[in-house]
């Protein structure tokens, strides 16, 4: 006598047969299926950073891919690896995913060598986003240090494209030196928008630099902030957002109205691999966007 046990074939599950949509968190899906995307354009920003435009090949997949500013994707170069990259583009620009990538490791290194037309894989979007809905009707501070402008560019798009929803907008941006300034070709455009002020500062000037010199917090001297009517988004290295948020907190901006984006190692983006754990918090699921009060409560976050 034999008892052949039941063969469970997960491919017969109704949910998994649906098209993969990473915005449906609870639905059973092929968690490691990537959307094949073409590098449709490459813009060199600095020696270390390039802006990649990606276009998902499959039309239906492209149509389903929607994200909110602050979210990230897992970008896979098959054979090389997978890295988390925050989306730098506008959510309204359907079908185009803009990623600003610094050459830092194997995957990003080979991406910098890749040519237009190369095919990569994308999973996502993942993570939390900046609460642009809640920020409506307030003064907005958009503050970036260094590579922080990459994730900040998405909310800059969202705010400028929906200009009437927000009051005064101040964009503050600081880098080590002028050679590291990202997206310099867009500054003029941002400056010309009514009620949007762009302030740029570098820590060390070169011969040609005529703008401000110093740490980013120095820019606060130029800006009038009404603390209880302001929301802030701060993107940059921990030392930078720590000082910026401390200043804002001191002048009375509530900590739960300041938002930062944290960076950690990630291997899955889905709260499974634990690599991005900060205490009991998953940067990939509970973040990467956190309000500053939450960050203060995360041990080892800063």
């Amino acid at each position: 006598m034999k008892i052949p046990l039941y063969h469970y074939d997960i491919m017969k599950e109704r949910e998994i047969q649906q098209p993969v949509d990473f915005n449906r968190h609870r639905r059973l899906k092929h968690t490691d299926k990537t959307f094949k995307a073409e590098i449709s354009s490459i813009t060199t920003l600095t020696d270390m950073e390039k802006l990649f435009h990606l276009r998902i090949l499959d039309e239906a997949e492209r149509e389903r891919f929607t994200f909110l500013p602050g979210q990230f994707v897992m970008l896979e170069v098959p054979g090389y690896g997978e890295v988390p990259i925050s989306i730098s583009g506008s959510p309204s620009n359907k079908g185009l995913i803009e990623l600003c990538i610094r050459k830092a490791g194997t995957v990003t290194g080979v991406l910098h060598k890749a040519k237009r037309g190369a095919l990569v894989g994308i999973r996502g979007p993942f993570g939390t986003h900046f609460p642009l809905e809640k920020m409506k009707g307030y003064d907005i501070l958009l503050i970036a240090g260094g590579l922080g402008l990459a994730p900040l560019r998405a909310p800059i798009f969202a705010v400028t494209e929906n200009r009437p929803d927000y009051r005064k907008v101040d964009i503050m941006y600081g880098t080590k030196d002028p050679s590291q300034l990202l997206f310099d070709y867009q500054y003029e455009q941002w400056r010309r928008i009514d009620g949007v002020n762009l302030h740029i500062i570098v820590e060390k000037a070169d011969d040609k630099w005529t703008g401000d010199v110093g740490l980013i917090t120095k820019l606060f001297d130029k800006i009038e902030i009404v603390p209880h009517e302001t929301y802030a988004i701060v993107c940059g290295p921990p030392v930078m957002f720590k000082f910026v948020c401390a200043y804002l907190s001191k002048i009375g901006v509530p900590m739960d109205r300041m938002f930062v984006s944290l960076e950690r190692r990630m291997h899955c983006g889905m709260g499974k691999c634990c690599r991005c754990n900060i205490g009991s918090t998953y940067t990939c699921i509970d973040g990467p966007v956190f309000d500053y009060w939450t960050v203060m409560n995360l041990k080892e976050a800063i």
């Binding site: 098959p78 054979g79 080979v110 060598k113 890749a114 040519k115 037309g117 190369a118 095919l119």
Partner: peptide, 8 residues
């Protein structure tokens, strides 16, 4: 890798 237009 050929698919990246990088020839070994």
């Amino acid at each position: 890798m050929r698919y990246l237009s990088i020839e070994p």
